[in-house]
Design a protein around this nucleic acid. Structure first.
Length: 417
RNA sequence: GGAGGGAUGCCCGAGUGGUUAAAGGGGACGGGCUGUAAACCCGUUGGCUUAGCCUACGUUGGUUCGAAUCCAACUCCCUCCA
C-alpha cells in the first residue's frame, strides 16, 4: 500500500520484511489503533534457534517496538507428532522432556529480542501442546474438519507441488495445515490474536487459519509473510564452514557469530542491515552506498549491530577487537575460540593430525592431511609442512597458547589445561 | 492383484564381469587474485597405523580366480493396467 498510517506496517515494509499480506488496509488500521496481538510459530526440534529464524524474530521485535503484542507460538504439540516435511528419514520423535528443554532454550533467545511480561505490549510465549494434546478426534472432525474441503486443500501449493512431482504426501502431513489453522483460531479465541506471520512457505497455512477463524467465530484476522531469505549467492541463509549459525553463545561463540555477519556478501549488506539491525534507514542507505573495499566498514557495523542484539554490546566489542587483532594487526588475539588440551598430552607430544582434529579444524585425519597438503594448515601462523610433525609444549607462544589455523579465516587457540 | 522401470559416494548422476574408491556436475574445503567480498582460475573431496589395509554402489545369499556390474530372494520407490 502507498502510505501506511501505522508505524508497524510502514517500518516493516520499508525494511523489506513483507513478502505478501492479506488486507494491508486492515492490518494498517489495526496496528495503528493500538496493541494488536500477532503471532509466529516456531518448531521445538532443537535446543536453540539458528540464523534462519532471525527474520521472523526481528519481525516480532518491530511489532513490539511499534506498540503491538508479539505472541511466540512454540510448536510443542506438533513437534510431538514429528514434523513430516523432511524427505527421507523419518524424524526421531522427541520425548516430552526434550521438547520442554528445547522450549526453555529457545525462550532464552527470544528474551534477547523481545520483552516478555503481562503488559498490553509485552510478549508472551504459548505452546500449542496446551490445546492440541487433548483434542478428541471425532469432535475435531465434526467441529473443524467440516470447514475444510479436500478440493481446496488440494489446490494449495504445498500440496499441489508435491502431488505434481509425484512425491508421496502422508495423511499426517496433509493434516498439518489443518492443525496450524486450528492454532490460529485457538489463539484468536484465547488471547484475541489477530494476525499470523511467518515464512512465505507458510502462506497457504496462514490463509487457512484466517478462513477457519472467520467461519468458526466470524472474526476477521490477518496474515503476513516474510520473504524466503537466501544470500545473493543463492545459498540458504545461516550455514557456514563450522555448521549452523546458532543463536546461542554456547553453541556458537559471539566471535564466530560476529564473523558470520562480517563475511556477508557485498550485495547483501544493505538488505541485511535493514532486516537484522535496528539502525536508522537513512543511515543504512549511506552505508550501503559505500564503494569497493569501503563496504567492509558497513559489514563491521552490521556485525556489531547484529552481535549486540544477540550477545550484548560488550561481546560485540570484544569480537570486533579479536577480529582486528587477528586480521588487521597479525597479533594473537587471546579470546579466539579456544580448545583445551591436557598439559600432559602436550608434554608427551601430540601428532599434528590429532591436534587438528581435536581443535575441530578437521573431521578426520584424512581431512587434516589434505588440509596440510593443500597448504591451508598453519601452526602459530607458520605453514605446516609435514603431516608427521608433533606439537609439544615448546610450541607454546609467549601468550601461553598455540594457534592453529585452517585457511585464512578459521583460527583456534589451544591452551594446556 | 498383473506388467514394467528403478535404488550408486554429502546431493544429482554415469557406469552392465577385471585397469573402479567408482566418469561428470553441484556443494563443501584449501590455494591464487582481492577487500576476512563477488566473479574467475587451480587443487582436494570414504576411513586408517597410507608404496599397504579396511569399508563402500538398497538388504541377504549365490555364481566366478574376480561382481556396482550376472543369478535368487527380500525391502522400498515409481509407471501403466485391474
Amino acid at each position: 500500500m502507498a502510505n501506511p498510517k501505522s508505524d508497524f506496517l510502514r517500518i516493516v515494509t520499508e525494511r523489506g520484511f513483507v513478502h505478501q499480506c492479506t488486507d494491508a488496509d486492515g492490518i494498517d488500521a489495526e496496528t495503528a489503533k493500538g496493541p494488536m496481538p500477532a503471532y509466529i510459530g516456531f518448531d521445538a526440534t532443537a535446543t536453540s534457534l539458528h540464523a534462519g529464524s532471525l527474520l521472523p524474530i526481528m519481525l516480532l521485535r518491530w511489532l513490539q517496538k511499534t506498540g503491538n503484542k508479539p505472541i511466540v507460538l512454540m510448536g510443542g504439540g506438533t513437534t510431538r507428532v514429528g514434523d513430516p516435511s523432511g524427505k527421507d528419514e523419518s524424524r526421531k520423535l522427541l520425548t516430552d522432556e526434550q521438547i520442554a528443554d528445547n522450549i526453555a532454550g529457545i525462550k532464552r533467545v527470544f528474551a534477547k529480542f523481545l520483552t516478555f511480561g503481562d503488559g498490553p505490549t509485552d510478549a508472551v510465549m504459548v505452546n500449542n501442546d496446551d490445546w492440541l494434546r487433548g483434542l478428541n478426534y471425532i469432535d475435531f472432525l465434526r467441529d473443524i474438519g467440516r470447514h475444510f474441503t479436500i478440493n481446496r486443500m488440494l489446490s494449495f501449493d504445498s500440496v499441489k507441488l508435491r502431488l505434481d512431482r509425484e512425491q508421496p504426501l502422508t495423511f499426517l502431513e496433509f493434516n498439518y495445515m489443518i492443525l496450524q489453522a486450528y492454532d490460529f483460531m485457538e489463539l484468536n479465541k484465547r488471547v484475541g490474536c489477530k494476525m499470523q506471520m511467518g515464512g512465505s512457505d507458510q502462506w497457504g497455512n496462514i490463509v487457512n487459519g484466517i478462513e477457519l477463524t472467520r467461519r468458526v467465530s466470524g472474526n476477521e484476522v490477518f496474515g503476513l509473510t516474510v520473504p524466503l531469505l537466501t544470500t545473493s549467492g543463492g545459498a540458504k541463509m545461516g550455514k557456514t564452514a563450522s555448521g549452523a549459525i546458532w543463536l546461542d553463545g554456547d553453541q556458537l561463540s559471539p566471535y564466530d557469530y560476529w564473523q558470520f555477519w562480517r563475511n556477508t556478501d557485498d550485495a547483501d549488506v544493505g538488505r541485511f542491515l535493514r532486516l537484522f539491525t535496528d539502525m536508522d534507514i537513512a543511515e543504512i542507505a549511506k552505508l550501503e552506498a559505500l564503494e569497493g573495499s569501503e563496504i567492509n566498514e558497513a559489514k563491521k557495523i552490521l556485525a556489531h549491530e547484529a552481535t549486540s542484539l544477540l550477545h550484548g554490546a560488550a561481546a560485540a566489542e570484544a569480537a570486533a577487537e579479536t577480529a582486528r587483532k587477528t586480521f588487521d594487526a597479525g597479533q594473537i588475539a587471546n579470546d579466539l575460540p579456544t580448545v583445551e588440551i591436557p598439559r600432559g598430552d602436550l608434554e608427551a607430544g601430540i601428532g599434528i593430525l590429532d591436534i587438528l582434529n581435536r581443535a575441530g579444524l578437521a573431521a578426520s585425519n584424512g581431512e587434516a592431511r589434505r588440509l596440510i597438503k593443500n597448504g591451508g594448515a598453519r601452526l602459530n601462523d607458520e605453514k605446516i609442512a609435514s603431516d608427521s610433525m608433533t606439537v609439544t609444549l615448546s610450541d607454546l607462544m609467549d601468550e601461553g597458547v598455540i594457534k592453529l589455523s585452517s585457511g585464512k579465516k578459521r583460527h583456534i587457540l589451544v591452551r594446556p589445561a
